[in-house]
Amino acid sequence: MALLHINGLTHYFGGLRAVYDFNLALEEGELIGLIGPNGAGKTTVFNLITGIYRPTKGTIQFNGQNLVGLQPHQITAKGICRTFQTIRLFNNVSVLDNVRIAFYSQVRSNLLDAFFRTPHLVSEDKALTREAYRLLEIFNLERYAQELAMNLPYGEQKRVEIARALATKPRLLLLDEPAAGMNPGEIDRLMDLIQRIRQEFGLTIFLIEHQMRLVMRICRYIKVMDFGETIAEGTPEEIRTNPRVLQAYLGEEVE
């Protein structure tokens, strides 16, 4: 039984066919990649999985449960979390609170505890704060804990986004172009980081890359999209030599 099972996923924006007949059976522990030229429909696939859009057609099942029609917060609480292609941090909030916000669905104290700041809430919040610091340490971000997120350099902001996503305790992590805007050195370090958190948190990872550099190196299985359709899938070697992929990437560099 696959952890994430997508069948015939199709999505139209008005007359524009953004995603057409997308299928996926993602097993627990896998790390797979989704590539394709700009506008191919990759981000839309993530938006459909996480409930931001409701698909025109098709089914999405996570751990055997249907996801279509659920609110994004419910889907994340089930164990799928994501990062965004363009960083979407809570800018005027400290890095620590960016992470603490993501604990929302795990909070056991109720609203009355919150209004009266009961000992139960205080001790729970303390535990969450410790946990947030632990996550920040893994990403080498603890010294920024009290800094507003918007004051961090770009690369650090990208790491905060991943740390924040992990705070929701996902089983499946969706990364949307994590290497965008990074130089080769930074990309190497990012790859190490992804491998490390994958081990440490027992994650299944599904990642989008526009460039092929990162994907070809860390993913054992890759899907390629163009104009909403899946035009190829297979191992990096198969993808590299696939004529349809080469054609789709015509005019863009293929490694």
């Binding site: 609110q71 917060h73 994501r82 941090l89």
Partner: peptide
């Protein structure tokens, strides 16, 4: 700060 990100981080925004 960002309603879509809030939802994505499990906040029941409504």
């Amino acid at each position: 700060e960002d309603e879509i990100a809030a939802e994505a981080m499990t906040v029941n925004t409504r």
